[in-house]
Write a protein that binds this DNA or RNA. Structure first.
Length: 278
DNA sequence: TTAGGCCTGCAC
DNA sequence: GTGCAGGCCTAA
C-alpha cells in the first residue's frame, strides 16, 4: 500500500527515467480511471514531461504546454516503465508512449487510485489540493500542527485525514505513534507542544528510515522499475499484533479506530488522561 | 462524526 | 463462499 515513502520512491525512479521525455501516444484502456480531464487526455500527445513533484501520496506531473497530471496510486496502483505498450499486468488502465520508445504503464487492480488532468495553474487544480492536503509529512514543521489546538479529534483519525499532514497511511501512522509513545486516541488539542515536536520528529524518522530501504512492500507495491521495498522487515507495530513490543516486550494489541486496524503497545502508548472519550 | 461504497485478491 | 484489507469520497 503506497504511502509517502513508496510514492517518493516511485517519483525518484520515474523522474530519473522520463524527465524531458515527449509523450508520443496515449492509450486509455479504462476511461473512468481518468477522474478529471477524460476528454482531453489524448491531447497530451506531443506534451513534454518537465518535472514530477509530490505532495503527500500524490504525484504532480508538470507537462508542456500548460498541463498538470495528478496521479494517486490508491492501494494497488503501479506506474512502471516498459519497453512496449502491451499491457504486461492485468488492470492496466492507461499507457503513455514516449518518443524514445519507452512506455509508462498505469495499472491498479482495485482502482482506488486515479489520474486527474488539469490545466496548469487552473482553479480546478488548486481545488484538488486546497482543503484536502496539508503539509507534506516529509517537510512537516511543528508549527504546521498549531491548528490542532482547536481540533477535538483523535490523533490517528487526524493523521489519516491528510488535512494537516499529508502522506501518512495506516502503516506509518501506527509506526510514528509507537515511536513517539503516543496513544492513537489522544485528542490532538490535548497534545502539549513537546508532544507535537516529538511526533513531528518521529514522523520524519520513520519516513526517512523507510525511504532508505526503498519503502514498504507488503504485497503489491513496486517502484517504477518494478522493484519491491525492503522496509517491511523493520516495522515495529504494523502487522505485529500479538507479538512482543521491540522496546518493552509487552504483547502488542490490535483494535479499530475510524474503521482502521490499529496496533499499539499498551504499555509504551498510554491512553493518558486526555484520551478521546468513546 | 460515522457508515457505506468503491474494488479485487487472498486467507480462512 | 465469506470476509477482510485499505485510501478516500459521499451521504446520512
Amino acid at each position: 500500500m503506497p504511502e509517502l515513502p513508496e510514492v517518493e520512491e516511485v517519483r525518484r525512479t520515474l523522474i530519473a527515467a522520463v524527465r524531458d521525455e515527449i509523450i508520443d501516444g496515449v492509450t486509455v484502456l479504462r476511461p473512468d480511471y481518468v477522474r478529471h480531464g477524460r476528454k482531453t487526455i489524448r491531447n497530451l500527445k506531443g506534451s513534454g514531461i518537465i518535472d514530477i513533484t509530490r505532495l503527500g501520496k500524490r504525484l504532480f506531473w508538470q507537462l508542456t504546454p500548460s498541463a498538470c497530471m495528478v496521479t494517486h496510486l490508491g492501494m494497488t496502483g503501479r506506474i512502471t516503465l516498459r519497453p512496449d505498450d502491451k499491457p504486461a499486468e492485468p488492470h492496466t488502465h492507461l499507457v503513455l508512449g514516449l518518443k524514445t520508445g519507452k512506455f509508462l504503464h498505469f495499472s491498479d487492480a482495485r482502482r482506488f487510485g486515479g489520474v486527474w488532468l488539469y490545466a496548469a495553474e487552473s482553479q480546478a487544480l488548486q481545488a484538488h489540493v486546497t482543503g484536502r492536503l496539508g503539509a507534506d509529512a516529509l517537510n512537516l514543521a511543528v508549527t504546521d500542527l498549531d491548528g490542532w489546538k482547536q481540533k477535538r479529534v483523535p490523533l490517528k483519525a487526524e493523521l489519516l485525514s491528510q488535512k494537516t499532514v499529508a502522506g501518512l497511511g495506516n502503516i506509518y501512522v501506527d509506526e510514528a505513534l509507537w515511536m513517539a509513545r503516543l496513544h492513537p486516541l489522544r485528542r490532538v488539542d490535548q497534545l502539549p507542544h513537546a508532544a507535537r515536536a516529538l511526533l513531528t520528529h518521529c514522523i520524519h524518522e520513520v519516513l526517512h528510515a523507510s525511504l532508505a530501504m526503498g519503502g514498504t512492500t507488503l504485497r503489491d507495491y513496486r517502484d517504477a522499475n518494478a522493484n519491491a521495498g525492503r522496509f517491511a522487515q523493520s516495522l515495529n507495530v504494523y502487522g505485529r499484533a500479538g507479538q512482543p513490543c521491540r522496546r518493552c516486550g509487552t504483547t502488542l494489541r490490535k483494535f479499530l479506530i475510524a474503521q482502521r486496524t490499529t496496533v499499539i503497545c499498551p504499555k509504551c502508548q498510554r491512553a493518558g488522561r486526555h484520551r478521546t472519550e468513546k
